[in-house]
Write a protein that binds this DNA or RNA. Structure first.
Length: 359
DNA sequence: TGCATTTGACCCCA
DNA sequence: TGGGGTCAAATGCA
């Protein structure tokens, strides 16, 4: 209980910080493009990075399993961070150019519905029927195990109790990746930023960051998942969002109390907003993103600094899906999407503010 | 034809 | 000795 209170408090603070960051970013990006020099771009990149980390930390508090996964045996990094009261430090992040993501050491187990989407490339090398198991256990090693000597392996075992939909898998990770080549071809959001801008003011290097992001290094994907998940949480939570098109409404969730994938929603609250966020797959997220752009209307850059007591009420005005110009929100997929991220995150926060009440 | 996957055999360990 | 993990030849596919 006390832990939940503390977690909510931390979450509250993290969201407040993200609100401030998004405000700064909006102010920065609202300048005419010709006025945004390389220093300004560096600032925008740095703020966007930090904003991304804040949202990642916040969502991890919502969902300790990270993108629908739960870790057995020990707390995930953000979860542990909450316990230790140092969220930002244990959140997958690059601080002063140093990796702070706790390395995967030894053996780690997860229950996930998507055992093959962890950001790394795996090569299957074996399959074995296990005694008293309905499903065979699959054995994978890192694709770079030979040429780079990466010793990372994983075992995937479909849960016996997961017959039907959605199937759940127990994934056992063995050894740390030493290849650091997750998603080598992915474009990160600052792809169009000049080369001189890849090093931020605090020394964070984007290539370094991309190599070391916790979940496979796909920062853009993570950011999009984060944003979309938040959209779903808000859309599903706020009855005051009648203007949202059905496309943006979360699909119904059939939560089973006995389902190990179900989350403790704090007792009796059902369906949880958090549960609603669990049922987004990437296709839905892409649809949300690329067919409508942001589901929310643009807002003015809010005044900073933000304070706990000064949250503006969120009057969501009706929006027409057809009135949204995707180009205004999505400069390009895989390109420089800072404006979208900042805009969407700020809008998301405006919408979500009534969901969180000060302690 | 090259690469990824499958699958039976082999090895190791409790 | 049996179960789990790995190897490597066979197979499938683009």
């Amino acid at each position: 209980m006390a832990f939940q209170q503390e977690a909510v408090g931390k979450l509250w603070e993290e969201l407040g910080r993200s609100y401030n960051l998004s405000a700064k970013l909006l102010a920065l990006l609202s300048q005419p493009s010709h006025l945004l020099d390389s220093h300004g771009q560096e600032m925008a990149v740095a703020i966007s990075q930090e904003l991304s980390q804040v949202f990642r930390a916040s969502l991890s508090m919502f969902n300790p399993g990270n993108s629908g996964r739960m870790v057995e045996g020990r707390a995930t990094a953000p979860e542990a961070a909450i316990m230790e009261g140092s969220i930002s430090q244990a959140t997958p992040a690059i601080i002063s150019g140093e990796e702070v993501t706790p390395p995967r050491i030894g053996k780690e187990e997860e229950i996930t519905a998507e055992p093959y989407k962890d950001g790394y490339k795996w090569k299957k090398y074996g399959q074995k029927n296990i005694k008293n198991r309905k499903f065979a256990r699959l054995y994978f090693r890192c694709m770079h195990s030979h040429e780079r000597g990466c010793r990372a392996k994983k075992q995937v075992q479909q849960q016996d109790s997961s017959i039907g939909s959605p199937p759940l898998y127990k994934v056992i990770y063995l050894n740390e990746h030493t290849c650091h080549q997750a998603f080598p071809n992915v474009n990160i959001t600052n792809a169009n930023v000049p080369a001189t801008s890849t090093t931020t003011r605090n020394g964070a290097d984007f290539d370094h960051a991309r190599r070391h992001l916790h979940v496979g290094g796909n920062g853009e994907l993570e950011d999009r998942i984060m944003t979309s998940t938040f959209s779903t949480v808000i859309g599903g939570a706020a009855p005051a969002a009648p203007s949202l098109s059905p496309l943006q409404s979360p699909p119904p969730v059939e939560a089973s109390p006995s389902d190990p994938a179900s989350y403790d929603t704090g007792g009796g609250q059902s369906p949880s907003l958090l549960d609603l966020s669990m049922c987004l797959d990437e296709t839905m997220m892409d649809e949300m993103y690329f067919s409508c752009g942001s589901p929310f209307r643009p807002v003015e850059a809010p005044a900073a600094p933000w304070s706990l007591s000064s949250l503006p009420p969120p009057p969501p005005p009706p929006i027409e899906a057809s009135s949204i110009d995707p180009a205004a929100y999505m400069p390009s997929r895989g390109g420089h999407s800072l404006s979208l991220d900042a805009m969407t995150m700020a809008e998301i926060f405006l919408w979500s503010s009534p969901l969180f009440s000060p302690r």
